[in-house]
Design a protein around this nucleic acid. Structure first.
Lengths: 138, 138
DNA sequence: TGACGAGGTCACGTTAGGGAACTAGGCTGA
DNA sequence: TCAGCCTAGTTCCCTAACGTGACCTCGTCA
């Protein structure tokens, strides 16, 4: 997702003169939760909220995710302040994650979206199949 | 957004085997509305719903979008059945877009997300800045 | 001749996401 | 003593996709 300047080059002056509004918060939010694993992680964490989930447990609950992507996703969420990270200095170190207050407040809108998705995705899939079909005779 | 494919329904056989659960509708939805311009287009169209908006007008209302991306975005939305496309056979042809019933039903959850984003993005930005700062002494 | 409207196409750069290998370090077993 | 295991990452490298600008169409109007 590139909200930043594409290509890094500058555009001719006096052209349209405007770049993208960096103030569109919805885009910024979707840049975050729209990444492949983020919403799943939030969901899994929300299911346990206000409890904590460990790294390996998250991995287990998010089928298909790699260590790296889970790590990257959690770091991103932690940076945003949506999840909190607690390290137990045992050996091997145990790291616990939980949604923050902010993260839990996101669960409402996100679950609304989830409900919509579960309700309407079949219809969207059907629409796509219709669009793939050859046009009806006539 | 790897699962979305604007122009190809099946993947080459013998790829890396399997992809993620295709049964996660939330991911599929986010693959769609998470693309850079989709949510903006939906928003602009929703503001005019149930009225129509023309291509050039959409372009004007979405600062920074290129013709191509607007075109691609609208095609994708039309494929999904979220927007309807009406061509007036004038010269030059005038194409009108509007949200379908399905599209308008998405506006609810989406606007909830938008409200959340507008409310909390400053906090998220602040959290990011805090994360960038050097750790406090002591 | 050029602009408009609604795109299509091409070449290109950036980015997300993926795999595999590597790290830390106390504990266990040989 | 040394190898190997465990968790939670990190690093490198690669590819597919996403998004971009530039240029093209086509008919009419000025």
């Amino acid at each position: 997702m590139t909200t930043s300047r594409p290509g890094g080059r500058d555009r001719p002056p006096g052209e349209r003169g405007d770049l993208l509004d960096p103030r569109c918060p919805t885009r910024q939010l979707l840049d975050r939760i729209g990444t492949k694993w983020t919403s799943m992680a939030v969901k899994v964490l929300a299911e346990q909220a206000p409890g904590e989930v460990r790294f390996a447990e998250l991995r287990r609950r998010i089928p298909g995710i790699s260590q790296k992507m889970l790590s990257v996703t959690l770091q991103s969420l932690a940076r945003d302040g949506l999840v909190a990270r607690r390290v137990e200095p045992t050996v091997p170190p145990a790291v616990h994650y939980r949604l923050t207050e902010l993260g839990r407040s996101l669960e409402g809108p996100l679950s609304a979206l989830r409900v919509w998705a579960e309700t309407h995705m079949p219809e969207i899939d059907r629409n796509n199949q219709l669009a793939d079909e050859p046009p009806p005779t006539g």
